[in-house]
């Protein structure tokens, strides 16, 4: 008899909310780094960061679809949805910090940690004691002292919970898939969903969706390319560190594809984990950063509407994201007074 972490629909909703938080939380760091790269320079690095960021947004969409399918509420405007950076993510037994900052060698190390595939070693518990009171996205549904060993384990527990709760419900002639189908965001509304976004309305479609997130993000350490021939996030970044692309047939750590040249200097020196209160009040820069945060807050509210029955709004979200790009590119060209760093969005929502 297996024990299940997720034993009620309420706990499932709670974990799916954490999943959305988690998927969203990686976007600002990746996007800050992406736009810190001088336009036109480092095309390979920019392309890899962009690809990963787009997939993280796909994962957010998938998590929201599952949440809607099981009758939960998608709300990105809840206080604390956006973490205060730096935030903490797990890497097996240990935690590490993820923050906002420029693209660079240290940042790349962090990305590799974020994306390092890790399922708990065989025989070892899938849970780890939380140290030092850190707040975790992937904490246990009801034991606040525990977190999952890895993001992969966290999602695996959600999948187990869905299967378990649905079989329980079915035994009573019911289902947990009570959500409104009109709330599902499908490929026609999602910019880059190509074939990987489907409506979630039963165990099969939900499990396939979660498996996709696990495979793209957390994949198996031994497997560079997924079933669709798509390269896992960890190996996307590993290519930058190794200075070479992987191709089919390569061994982990030994890419043999085209060489990648990274120009580590062609990056705007944006401040790390900048806070609004570090910028002189009443300066234009202060206003611009505050404006960005306000616009981002409004954007999250807009996305929330999209996931609450107006999926067409996702189409309008795209031009709004271009607006963020423009705002961000203005900010990161402006030096902060008295330092060697440039401004950046702070994502204080």
């Amino acid at each position: 008899m297996t024990t299940h972490d997720i034993t009620s629909i309420g706990l499932l909703h709670r974990q799916l909310f954490k999943a959305m938080q988690l998927e969203h939380a990686t976007a600002p760091p990746y996007i800050s780094a992406l736009y810190s790269i001088h336009p036109g320079d480092n095309a390979d690095a920019a392309q890899i960061l962009r690809a990963v960021a787009v997939e993280e947004m796909l994962h957010l969409t998938i998590a929201a679809n599952v949440m809607n399918a099981v009758g939960g509420t998608v709300d990105f405007t809840v206080a604390g949805f956006v973490p205060s950076y730096p935030t903490v993510l797990p890497d097996g037994e240990h935690d590490f910090e993820v923050g906002l900052g420029p693209f660079g060698k240290d940042a790349l190390e962090t990305y590799l940690k974020i994306e390092r595939p890790a399922m708990a070693p065989r025989g070892q518990a899938r849970h780890v004691q939380i140290k030092g009171g850190a707040r975790h996205f992937i904490s246990h549904p009801h034991d606040q002292t525990l977190r999952y060993y890895s993001i992969g384990e966290f999602y695996a527990a959600i999948r187990d919970g869905i299967v378990y709760l649905e079989s329980e419900a079915k035994a009573k002639g019911k289902t947990i898939f009570t959500g409104d189908r009109a709330k599902q965001a499908t490929a026609e509304y999602y910019y880059s969903g190509g074939g990987r976004l489907w409506p979630v309305f039963d165990v099969d479609s939900a499990c396939r969706a979660i498996d996709l997130v696990i495979e793209q993000g957390e994949g198996e350490l031994k497997q560079i390319f997924g079933a669709e021939g798509e390269i896992a996030h960890y190996y996307r970044f590993d290519q930058l560190q190794k200075g070479r692309y992987y191709q089919i047939g390569d061994q982990p750590g030994q890419p043999t594809g085209r060489e990648i040249h990274v120009n580590w200097e062609a990056v705007w020196p944006i401040a790390v984990n900048l806070k609004l209160n570090k910028i002189p009040e009443k300066s234009e820069l202060h206003a611009a950063v505050a404006d960005f945060n306000k616009a981002y807050r409004e954007f999250l509210a807009f996305l929330t509407r999209a996931f609450n029955g107006e999926p067409k709004l996702l189409l309008e979200a795209v031009p709004r994201m271009f607006e963020f790009r423009n705002r961000m590119q203005q900010l990161i060209r402006n030096p902060l007074p008295g330092g060697d760093c440039n401004a950046a969005p702070t994502y204080e929502i």
């Binding site: 392309q47 787009v54 880059s192 692309y245 191709q247 089919i248 085209r258």
Partner: peptide, 16 residues
């Protein structure tokens, strides 16, 4: 790449 291996680009799936 030069050997004909294709990677998904996440770019240009809609006119911008």
């Amino acid at each position: 790449d030069a050997d004909g291996n294709a990677r998904r680009s996440f770019l240009g799936e809609r006119c911008e």
